[in-house]
Computed example of a mutant assay.
Amino acid sequence: MPRPFRQVDVFTTTPYRGNPVAVVLDADGLTDDQLARFAQWTNLSETTFVLPPTTPAADYRVRILTPTMELPFAGHPTLGTCHAWLEAGGVPKGDPIVQECGAGLVRVRRTADGLAFAAPPLLRSGPVEEPLVAHVAGLLGLDRSAVVDAEWVDNGPGWVAVLLADADAVLAVRPTTVDLDIGVVGPYPPGSPCAVEVRAFSPQGGVAVEDPVTGSLNASVAQWLLRTGRLAAPYVSSQGTVLGRAGRVHVSTDTDGAVWVAGGTVTCVTGDVEL
């Protein structure tokens, strides 16, 4: 039967300049095989499927699939799914909106910078072992001395993040292969429109695949860099520059110290899909 569908560009207000996510708005009754087949067919970094929540605390439930696996949480699919759900007539029970996903309940709220999600807690944090830092540097085509610092920033996707001297160094990275999820970040000069440049690489068939704009990585990197005093909130990060995108991720904190990650969302495709 036809099921309502949206393709939403996230972390941008200009269509085709952010990171797209495919959203099937009524996935009730679909099998795991049907979900996996459609996610493989869209060939986007993530495809999401909206389902009734299993807890009264949530407004809706979402399953997040890449072409090869299911994720417990991801940032731009969270914002894109919420945008599509609201646009299709979803009515939240309160404020904030509550999304149920594999990682638990994620709060989403409307802000002046677009929809924002509360960064989930890190599953793994702390320093990266020195042999692994050297390995990551090699994967990125860098000398070990180019890595200023490195930290585990795993919030579902198993990110390890490296800090380079500046944004130009981040933009110059040209990996050919990676064997783990790597985030790269470097600061822009003080007073620049964006505080940092961020890039995200994940392995696919042994090849480094770059994600245009990555909410989960920005959320976990923010927790690291704010905690260590390298950045102060609010700030804006840039991502996707090398790919010809112009992603903008707005990071802020609330009075409780929670990190919120916001960005623009715009619908690019509307219709129905047969599954």
Rank of each mutant, 00 (worst) to 15 (best):
V106I: 15
D181N: 13
V259Y: 11
V21C: 04
T111I: 01
G18I: 01
E70I: 15
L71V: 05
W260S: 11
S237E: 13
S216A: 03
A262M: 09
D95P: 03
G18P: 04
A161I: 14
F73K: 07
E274R: 15
A137F: 09
P203R: 08
T55M: 02
P72F: 01
T55I: 05
V153T: 15
C82M: 09
Y60E: 13
T270S: 14
R144F: 12
L35V: 13
T255M: 07
A116F: 02
P131R: 08
T78H: 06
T14S: 11
D181Y: 04
D95H: 12
V8H: 00
V196L: 14
Q7I: 12
T253I: 10
L139E: 15
T31R: 06
P53T: 04
E70Q: 08
R174L: 06
V269F: 04
A150G: 15
T176K: 14
V62L: 13
F117L: 12
I64G: 02
V128D: 00
W152E: 08
M1N: 11
A57P: 06
R144K: 12
G80V: 02
S252H: 08
S202R: 00
H76P: 08
G206A: 13
V242R: 15
A222P: 06
D33H: 14
R230D: 05
A103M: 04
V153W: 07
W224Y: 13
F11L: 00
T255L: 07
Y16S: 04
F117H: 02
V21I: 06
W159Q: 03
V261H: 11
V242T: 08
L65A: 08
L79D: 04
G240M: 04
I97A: 03
L139M: 15
